[in-house]
């Protein structure tokens, strides 16, 4: 018996033996799921290629776009407005997400539905809402205009539109994170002398890092991609999506493709930098 086992061991480790073929037990393969799924992945790859290949074939458009101060300014405005929108969401959306995750009030469902509204609205409707609220005679625009904050065709207008459309992305992602932190951890923190606010800051928040980061990234991506809602309140200063649309209409596909390529490239770089910087964030999120 021992000799057989030893013999089998030596056979298995012999370099002359061909590698064993893996056989999936019947019905255990994921092929039936991968095949239809790859249609979607294929569409994304193709969409990237139809932008990338023509731009790389005609680099003069890319060089022109990269050196164009209008393009640079549009990128700057877009990214800055996106960061401001995320900052506003972090300050206001984080407490809302926490309240929603811990509350059992009967009104919770109503608030959750309201938070989701920007998700289901056509972007033009969202734009109209933002315009009516923040225009110089608007419900919020008028009093804020009184303290010098103008939204129409101004940077704050872009931020307002971005915040509005990105609310559900941030709040829902962060609320899910808070929901995963057991309330018992907060109870224990409080029994040890922490107030509700300190228990939130010292226990709940550090254990929701990954979801907060993810929510911020989703919201930022959604915000910088907004077009309709932004142009309705602030055509100027021009954001990148407005510029791409303008160049598409006036300069043709090649010009708009070059700017779109730059946007994709910058977003990818930013996403990679973000992932690198936050690679250790949320390392304890799943251990709570």
């Amino acid at each position: 018996m021992a000799r057989t086992a030893a013999g089998r061991g030596s056979l298995m480790s012999s370099p002359e033996q061909p590698p064993r073929k893996k056989y999936w037990p019947s019905g255990n393969s994921l092929a039936a799921f991968w095949i239809p799924g790859m249609i979607l992945v294929g569409i994304i790859v193709l969409a990237l290629l139809v932008i990338t290949i023509p731009v790389l074939r005609n680099p003069e458009y890319l060089a022109g776009a990269a050196s164009d101060p209008v393009v640079f300014q549009a990128f700057f405005v877009t990214f800055l407005a996106g960061f401001c929108a995320v900052g506003i969401l972090a300050i206001t959306g984080t407490p809302l997400a926490y309240a929603l995750s811990r509350s059992d009030t009967p009104w919770k469902g109503v608030v959750e539905t309201l938070v989701d509204i920007p998700l289901v609205l056509p972007h033009t409707v969202a734009g109209l809402m933002v315009y009516l609220l923040f225009m110089s005679r608007g419900l919020l625009g008028a009093p804020l205009g009184g303290i010098g904050l103008t939204f129409e065709d101004a940077f704050p207008g872009i931020v307002a539109a971005m915040v509005f459309v990105a609310i559900p992305y941030y709040v829902n992602a962060v609320r899910e994170g808070f929901g995963r932190v057991p309330v018992q951890l907060e109870n224990v923190a409080r029994s040890l002398g922490a107030s509700r606010a300190r228990a939130f800051v010292t226990v709940t928040l550090p254990l929701t890092t990954r979801h907060i980061m993810y929510g911020a990234l989703l919201a930022w991506g959604r915000a910088i991609g907004e077009f309709a809602a932004v142009i309705m309140i602030a055509y100027f200063p021009v954001v990148i999506s407005t510029l791409i649309y303008y160049r598409f209409n006036t300069g043709g596909i090649a010009e708009s493709q070059a700017i779109a390529f730059l946007l994709i490239l910058l977003c990818l770089v930013l996403f990679f930098v973000f992932r690198f910087l936050t690679r250790r964030a949320g390392v304890y999120d799943d251990r709570s």
Partner: peptide, 8 residues
């Protein structure tokens, strides 16, 4: 029961 230690 699960001791609720702070994992971070």
């Amino acid at each position: 029961q699960d001791y609720s230690l702070f994992p971070h």
